[in-house]
Design a protein around this nucleic acid. Sequence first.
DNA 1: AGTCTTACCTACCAGTAGGTAAGGAGTCAA
DNA 2: TTGACTCCTTACCTACTGGTAGGTAAGACT
Lengths: 206, 206
Amino acid sequence: MAQIQKRGDADTASRILDIAERLVQVRGFNGFSYADIASELKISKASLHYHFPGKAELGDTLIGRYAGRFTDALAAIDTSGEDARGKLEAYASIYADVLRDRRMCLCGMLAAEYDTLPKPMQDAIIDFFDQNEVWLTSVLERGQEEGALRFSGSAGDAAQTIVSGLEGALLIARPYGDVARFEAAATRLLSSLASAAAPDTTAAIT
Amino acid sequence: MAQIQKRGDADTASRILDIAERLVQVRGFNGFSYADIASELKISKASLHYHFPGKAELGDTLIGRYAGRFTDALAAIDTSGEDARGKLEAYASIYADVLRDRRMCLCGMLAAEYDTLPKPMQDAIIDFFDQNEVWLTSVLERGQEEGALRFSGSAGDAAQTIVSGLEGALLIARPYGDVARFEAAATRLLSSLASAAAPDTTAAIT
DNA sequence: AGTCTTACCTACCAGTAGGTAAGGAGTCAA
DNA sequence: TTGACTCCTTACCTACTGGTAGGTAAGACT
């Protein structure tokens, strides 16, 4: 399964995924069609079905790839040597990067459409958020132990608040096309939820 | 224009709006069709076009009615005699009620689909959020003056954080079907953003 | 009485949705 | 050189999308 590439061009399947991913993040899963991908890739609709039997499978693969990249990003933060507060800021900056591309978080978008999605996609979305909360919880717990962070309530609750706070900030900032709006909300969220001593609201995220 | 009702039934136009509203809040604007409303109301698709020329106009009317009800709810909170913290809790409980119906906030859902919507709907969505932030800003400012609330940064920024925090908490809690999850995030949000003295995280919202 | 309006109907439209069947061109190893 | 394999094509399918044309029954207005 060495997956040797035929031409110099990137493998079609991953180009399909790139386009589909952007379409989901911008228009939602119910807001695009196979025809949209086909015309952009200058390929026939039928070819898409060769690579992904149906839209449901395409959606599954999309979430899997996105979650995988997220896992990698979190692992990179873990090995960055930052303190807990720095790790939380790095986490928020992942979201800011998504917004700079004028996109919604893939799983945040799919969360809105949750009830219309096939079961496997629903399960994968839940897994994504669980995974994020597990990571945040451990960062928060360690930060609290080390005295770098101080917050009330459980680390798990705080983690949930961070995820939903950032997803909401993305959701609302996008119609305004305003990255600063997101950054203000993110900074305030982290400062108030996980500040050590000085609640420095003016600290930049990026 | 006495609008005498033929039968005992409620006016058809508002029943269409009721059904469409629920469909948007649960499935999204791109997640339902005229046929869905027609079959549920046991009426023909063509009749829907009699009441609302197109889906765009239906959407406009939907947002207008929703925003109007929101305005009324905010006015009711204003005259409730609650202190600032109580008003913020009452505000959050509007969102909790939406979630208890297994729905997303109408405008939060439409914010996700923003790029796919006709211009008039886009403008109405922005207006909705602006209106909420204006109201929250004045509650926060007054609360700060009266010493009931204390927070860093501008009241406007804090208002934005509350709106996006609550919308995000709705967005994420819905797939989990977990109202408690929303309430925990909402309480933490209000406590940390606008607490007077004791950061009482265990205070119930409802 | 006649006319206008409201609120619905059936039947239909062009366009698009996701999906399928059958086959052809290029590459490869035997 | 044959056959298998990969990746794509054309040509189609059915179901459904939002929307329209034309008609009808019943009440209200004059």
